[in-house]
Computed example of a mutant assay.
Amino acid sequence: MAMMITEECISCGACVSECPNNAISEGDFYYVINPDKCTECVGFFDEPQCVEVCPVDAIVLDPDHSESHDELLAKKRQLHGE
């Protein structure tokens, strides 16, 4: 699954620089994650780094974008040309 940012986001921006795929950007009301770029940090870290740094626990799994570990790894390879 890709991650998503909920309306609990306080727009602190802590998550932006942690994303190895540049999938996080400012939205109209709070930050958003592009599910086409989110790999849950598979291939980079053991845990999604955005979740680790979020001070208000506003980042959760996106139930609308379910992907297996292998699919996330393939997406990582596609995004980074590996």
Rank of each mutant, 00 (worst) to 15 (best):
L72W: 00
V53H: 10
S68A: 07
G27V: 08
D62R: 07
Q78S: 15
C12W: 03
K76N: 05
F45H: 13
M3P: 05
L72D: 00
E18I: 04
A14I: 02
D46K: 15
H80L: 06
E40H: 11
Q49R: 10
V56G: 02
C19Q: 04
M1F: 08
T39M: 01
C54T: 05
E71A: 07
E52P: 04
D62A: 02
I59K: 01
Q49I: 08
E52G: 05
E52Y: 02
A23H: 04
A74I: 01
F29W: 12
T6Y: 14
M1V: 10
E71D: 11
P35G: 08
C54I: 07
E52K: 14
S68F: 03
V42Q: 00
D57H: 15
V51R: 14
D36S: 13
S11Y: 11
F44C: 11
A14W: 09
I59H: 02
V32S: 03
E52D: 11
P48T: 08
E47Y: 15
G81C: 02
D70T: 10
E8C: 08
C41R: 04
K37A: 10
E82V: 13
T6W: 09
S25I: 04
Y30I: 12
F45S: 14
K75I: 01
C9D: 08
G43T: 00
P63D: 14
D57G: 12
I59W: 08
P35R: 04
I10C: 05
I5H: 02
C54D: 04
C50M: 04
G27I: 06
Q49S: 15
A2R: 04
D62K: 03
G81M: 08
L61M: 15
I24E: 05
P63H: 01
E82M: 14
C9F: 04
A2Q: 03
P20F: 03
E26P: 11
K76M: 03
E7I: 05
C50L: 09
E82W: 15
T6K: 09
V51T: 14
D57C: 14
I10V: 12
A23P: 03
Y31L: 05
E71N: 06
E18D: 15
K37M: 12
M1L: 13
Y31E: 02
K37G: 06
V32A: 02
G81W: 02
C9T: 02
G81I: 00
E71V: 01
T6D: 05
Y30W: 15
V16N: 09
S68M: 08
V51F: 06
L72Y: 00
V32I: 15
L79I: 05
V53W: 05
H69G: 06
D57V: 06
S25T: 10
